[in-house]
Nucleic acid binder design. Structure first.
Lengths: 211, 211
DNA sequence: CTCTCGATTGAACGACCGTTTAGTATACTG
DNA sequence: CAGTATACTAAACGGTCGTTCAATCGAGAG
């Protein structure tokens, strides 16, 4: 029999979970190996013993979160990363650590976070292209830039969740927040903000000038 | 004659500028007092001598940045914080340190950053109300939430400038980026993203259900 | 001139950091 | 059974952290 039967559900995974919690809450630099060890109920030496270094532990946490994110993609063709995030947002209590950590990853500019964001933009771009092709979405002068904007608008509640929650008087990312932002977001994406094209035309004119 | 004639333009201000640069670039926790001292060309002890502690230095940097931000508001009635930020974005080279630091402030959830964001939301809410009253902007089911969304969308390029720049192949916040995002942003705010209200109506129906 | 006081430095302090090491307990292998 | 590999701890190491302290310098006051 192997000594580590499932390679997980063990001390090692408890350490990783503790690290994910603390990295997400306090950030990488502000989290000490000793505090992770304490949260996991082990010694600091054991953390290093299992993961080699704090940096390698971070890399493993990153990989774990990315895997978690991809897991919920489902099997159908429609199943993309945004849908996965939608699933998570609808079951907040279960996925809060994952989402919190995701926000940190995107902020820290970690390797994994960068690649994840690139994937998100690519998926969004495809989705927007299909929307335009199907006639349900407006066309644009700069499809890639619009995909970047829509993507960043989408991850904004996760990345800026602290400020977002504070302004709504909520203790963190709550279902109430998600529900309340749904209509205004869709209103913006349906009717826009401006009632005519005055500002847009002015900008077009101005940009044509100094090109 | 006083020993510190203008109370600034001295070593003290050089230390503060160095701190702003490094806090903005690396974050508060990742910046050491010694590195600030080196950047300013002084000893670490002198930094503490002038500001009392690293935390008090941060508070003074916060206050300085907020003052810098308010300075550009101009005198006319239209002069609000957003206009000030617009001024800064149009003269990037001069205001880059200020804008970089501003992004950090909003992320760190510092006291000053929170208050600044509250002010921005309030100003945005007023601006949107006037827009609706003047008939140039769409109305909304949740004015405050829309103001929050529009505000956060507005600061997003500053807060997420690293990712934003990386995805456009730029080295940082550049005039090229600002120019390129102008049209897609205004397109979204003018025509929206969806060509009809299918999604919006569906969401309205769904929310009416589980209220 | 002396006295005083703020600016400034370099060394030192104690705390905490990530990591290493030596050692113990345990459980599988042959 | 002895042998070996692994989980794990406690202590220690070297380094960096924010901060303190004693000493020096220079300029203004009397």
């Amino acid at each position: 029999m192997r000594s580590t039967p499932v390679e997980d559900a063990t001390t090692r995974s408890r350490i990783r979970d503790a690290a994910i919690t603390l990295f997400a809450r306090d950030g990488f630099v502000a989290t000490s190996v000793r505090s992770i060890a304490e949260e996991a109920g082990v010694s600091a030496g054991l953390v290093i013993h299992h993961f080699g270094s704090k940096e390698k532990l971070r890399a493993e946490c990153d990989a774990w979160i990315v895997a978690e994110l991809m897991k919920n993609k489902g099997g159908v063709d429609e199943g993309n990363l945004s849908a996965s995030m939608q699933v998570m947002l609808s079951d907040l209590d279960q996925y809060r650590p994952t989402l919190d950590y995701l926000g940190r990853m995107l902020l820290d500019g970690s390797e994994a976070g960068d690649r994840l964001l690139d994937d998100l933009v690519k998926l969004t771009e495809t989705m927007l292209e299909e929307g335009v092709a199907n006639g349900v979405m407006q066309s644009t002068s700069d499809p890639y830039m619009r995909a970047v904007l829509v993507t960043l608008h989408g991850v904004m509640p996760i990345v800026l969740q602290r400020q977002f929650a504070r302004m709504l008087g909520e203790p963190g990312l709550t279902a109430t927040m998600i529900r309340r932002m749904t209509l205004p977001s869709l209103e913006l994406y349906t009717h826009g903000l401006y009632r005519d094209a005055t500002m847009l035309d002015a900008a077009r004119e101005a940009l044509k000038g100094n090109e």
